[in-house]
């Protein structure tokens, strides 16, 4: 982009109408106009350079899951917008079940690998892929661990000991006002949620907000003492991912979260900076139990919207779609 000397917005006072204009100021004035016009024209031809206001709220990429993951993040401005060089990044996929990719109970290893790769490219100092798994640890994380080996050893960890969790207050919690979160997560600079799109027999769907339960110690209490949906929102008020990438390459449409259920092949990756919007988009665009449902049919999405954690009215948000 051509740069003009001095302060481009400050018009020369001598060039105001009514003040005498000499040839020198005339030429300067016109040169400035030409430069600005060409700069704007350049910007029109390259809309990506046109600034933050053009970034979509929700990015949708369809096609090969690895390429779509990258494309979706790129639509939001690239991983560099979320991860700065030297930062510590936590990625939270679904790794709670020991099924294969065809079961759609867990985030696809390819998606996680691509996210780790993107964070590495952005210069992250430390990347950890963590989950508090439901089933036997080593088998749950096997697939993702293998996929991420190309980026280094020990990136993927299943955390199942209380000593890795730290007690934390939830200032905005209504029912759940404290919990124990993985210490690593509290220390991290960037949190990326990478849930798979799946139904959930008691939460409706298990997406980025429900997925945050994989970063805390005592999940049972969210079922037993609190209203599950209220406490999911309480937790989401504490753990707000900077980036949400929903893996909709396969959608577990029925019988989630453990399956086996009806698996839809949708080859879609949803990315957003707003966890409510990302979850709402997934609810709205996939079928659940053979039906089209609205984001407000999921109570925790509805409450999160009402409490201002994000927006579920995806139809009013800027959505951009790309095919890879």
């Amino acid at each position: 982009m051509p740069s003009s000397p001095g302060r481009p917005f400050a018009l020369n006072p001598t060039s105001w109408p009514g003040t005498p204009m000499n040839r020198r100021s005339f030429i300067k004035h016109n040169a400035r106009i030409i430069l600005w016009a060409s700069a704007i024209g350049f910007g029109i031809r390259l809309p990506r350079l046109a600034g933050a206001s053009q970034t979509p709220d929700i990015a949708l990429a369809t096609g090969d899951r690895t390429a779509a993951t990258r494309a979706a993040v790129d639509l939001l401005g690239g991983m560099g917008r979320f991860v700065k060089p030297g930062q510590k990044v936590i990625i939270k996929p679904n790794m709670s079940f020991a099924g294969g990719p065809e079961d759609a109970t867990d985030t696809h290893p390819d998606v996680v690998r691509e996210l780790v790769g993107l964070c590495k490219e952005a210069g992250a100092q430390r990347i950890r892929v963590l989950d508090h798994t439901l089933r036997r640890e080593e088998r749950c994380i096997e697939g993702v661990q293998k996929a991420c080996e190309v980026h280094g050893d020990d990136i993927v960890q299943a955390v199942s000991r209380s000593r890795f969790f730290e007690s934390t207050g939830i200032p905005d919690g209504r029912q759940m006002r404290e919990t124990e979160v993985m210490g690593e997560v509290l220390e991290a600079d960037v949190l990326i949620a990478a849930p798979v799109a799946k139904s959930h027999s008691s939460a409706g769907v298990s997406l980025s907000m429900k997925g945050m339960m994989g970063l805390i110690w005592n999940r049972g209490i969210m079922h037993s003492r609190f209203d599950l949906h209220e406490s999911i929102v309480d937790l989401a008020s504490l753990l707000k991912p900077d980036l949400i990438v929903v893996d909709g390459s396969r959608v577990l449409s029925t019988n989630g979260p453990g399956g086996p259920g009806h698996v839809l092949k949708r080859d879609t990756i949803i990315a957003s900076r707003d966890m409510v919007a990302a979850d709402a988009q997934a609810v709205a665009m996939f079928e659940w139990y053979g039906r089209k449902l609205k984001p407000r049919n999921v109570k925790h999405i509805r409450i999160a919207h009402e409490r201002g954690l994000g927006r579920m009215d995806v139809e009013n948000l800027r959505r951009q779609q790309i095919q890879v």
Binding site: L134, S201, S202, A203, H223, S224, L228, P257, G259
Partner: peptide, 19 residues
């Protein structure tokens, strides 16, 4: 919790490997 206290729990369904 579901039968007696009307809570949406159903962890048993979530974890059952045999469906």
């Amino acid at each position: 919790l579901a039968w007696e206290l009307d809570r949406k729990c159903l962890v048993c369904d979530e974890v059952c490997p045999y469906d």
